[in-house]
Design a protein around this nucleic acid. Structure first.
Lengths: 250, 250
DNA sequence: GTGCATTTGATTGAAAATGATTGACTTTGC
DNA sequence: GCAAAGTCAATCATTTTCAATCAAATGCAC
């Protein structure tokens, strides 16, 4: 099996489950633990996952442990995500009817939402909780709760979506690529994203710069179907549909 | 299980319930108490929770409780009165299709749910999260999220309910009275309770002994329409419809 | 084919994490 | 107050995981 293939499979596991063990990966991919370890080290250096004793966890779920208040913390991703979320939040206006996708990137958005009289719809359980607690008007999609993503998906959720017509829609993504568009590892989630986008006047996809030029298993939108909100632009070809945030340091 | 995964599970328990016991965590995660203790110490150092005698409490709980309580009582007062929840959970059988009402009383129920292949429907956001995280199949009612109760209510929720036919239904209540039946302060919540009860073969209401002989503004069920699960019985007249739990100190 | 670089798998001693035990300590109930 | 029950930190033996190392396998140029 090619190195690249392994990387993708490992990342897929990490993304969908949140955490994986070295031993399990070795067994499942019938590859020696040595190799799995080397792969994890490499992926950690690339910032695609976080290596921990016994395996790896996704960057998103990783509790910023010991180095939380130490200044050595790798703040880059945090700051990037914050500034992306901040910008996205600033796009919301009074009386907007906004869909907020489940996922960690969009979760940050909630911290920066303006106090304007907007109404929010989401399929993320924790998002709904956060929105409610910060005093916003919230509607939740009903239906089956996906165990790994803690989001409502499936036919019921899609049916619920057809009742709404959003002015704006904010989606997260796992990968962005000119050819494959916006992609994510989970089919159910992808379908919800697609349908939400279809029912929204304006669609924004939040993607930090590391998501570019990568591909995940399922495409949920073409590259032209949404505005990208990102921190910096590697490839100029995305330019026409992208809002780039100046990475203010601090 | 990876260390990080344990940290997350412990933190989730602490945050959703306010407090946890070392012994309970050890049993639930099938991990030795030694390890749980070490985890709690570590999480305390990180500032993610507050270690106390017997377990851990969330930082919020720690700050809001009286100083005298903080040392130990917080854990036990929060945790020790769940015999009602425990009994209720034991009533659930394989293939049951169960509605779990929002509210703090029913939240405890989730900790004791058997691993049987039951399916759960709830209108409580935190309930849905807890159910999902403990590995159960969960459906969530869709619709408007009530800010104060963090539950889904309103016409959409009622409409969603009509799709389901439950084998069992567990409701919380604010007050129980022979004449006024089961009552609660919130009309929207009451309506959801009524409709859920209507669509269930068996209806259980969870009520600790202090709720008896009190009345709240809105009646959601007659006293004869449900089984009461309670810890002790003041008035014998309730007897025919009540399951009393012996307060075992496990 | 040979020669050289890269990748992979196996081994190994060290490091880390875990679970059980024990005596000391804390709380509770009487 | 006392005794019983529950909980704790410290310690030790065991298991698991790690990084480093080396040899075999693979790929590639010639």
């Amino acid at each position: 099996m090619l190195q690249q293939e392994r990387y993708e499979k490992i990342l897929f596991q990490v993304q969908s489950k949140g955490a994986v063990k070295v031993t399990r990966l070795a067994k499942e991919l019938t590859i020696s633990e040595s190799t799995i370890r080397r792969d994890i080290i490499e992926l950690d250096h690339m910032g695609k996952l976080k290596k921990v004793f016994g395996g790896a966890v996704s960057c998103d779920t990783y509790l910023t442990s010991k180095e939380t208040d130490v200044k050595t913390r790798a703040v880059f991703s945090v700051i990037e995500k914050d500034s992306i979320a901040k910008h996205a939040a600033s796009l919301i206006e009074a009386n907007d009817f906004v869909f907020i996708d489940a996922g960690t990137t969009t979760a940050k958005l909630i911290d920066f939402l303006p106090d304007k009289a907007a109404t929010y719809v989401t399929n993320g359980l924790s998002h709904a909780l956060a929105l409610t607690r910060s005093g916003h008007r919230v509607y939740l999609l009903g239906g089956k709760v996906n165990a790994s993503t803690e989001a409502v998906t499936g036919t019921e959720a899609l049916a619920a979506l057809t009742k709404y017509n959003f002015t704006k829609c904010f989606l997260g993504t796992n990968a962005v690529d000119l050819e494959h568009g916006f992609t994510t590892p989970n089919l159910d989630e992808a379908t919800v994203k697609t349908h939400a986008a279809k029912r929204s006047s304006i669609v924004y996809v939040l993607a930090d710069s590391r998501k570019f030029e990568t591909v995940a298993p399922v495409t949920f939108l073409d590259i032209e179907s949404a505005w990208i909100i990102t921190d910096k632009l590697g490839n100029e070809e995305y330019k026409c549909r992208t809002e780039v945030i100046e990475t203010e340091s601090e």
